[in-house]
Design a protein around this nucleic acid. Sequence first.
DNA 1: AGGTTGACAAAGG
DNA 2: GCCTTTGCCAACC
Length: 116
Amino acid sequence: MTASPLYSSIYAHVRRVPAGRVTTYGRIARQVACTARTVGFAMAALPAGHDVPWQRVINSQGKVSPRRSGDGDLIQRQLLEAEGVQFDARGRVDLVRYGWDPDGGRAGRNRTKERL
DNA sequence: AGGTTGACAAAGG
DNA sequence: GCCTTTGCCAACC
């Protein structure tokens, strides 16, 4: 185990993201009191056998980041679509619609009707 | 011990 | 709306 508490916190927050919803690195970074880069790094450092939906984590632009190795970005899009997340013509996700707010849980006003 | 890279974000042009 | 620069923090060489 020996996993840094920081990483554990990041993973914990990502796990809190419900299916069909997406969040941004900056938002998680804000929750764990860290920078967005650290969050991205934590995702890249995901160990095998993790139950963390890293695919639900995208950048503030509402788009998946073109990572350097592998075609994970394509996988991410496929997984999100499988969860019910729709992408824009340019491959962009509507954060206002699918964006998961850590504080939005209390006031459902901003929470767009989950049903399309 | 120091420099570079990286699944980012915010601000400026 | 897109591209460039700066700041950030952690891992890798």
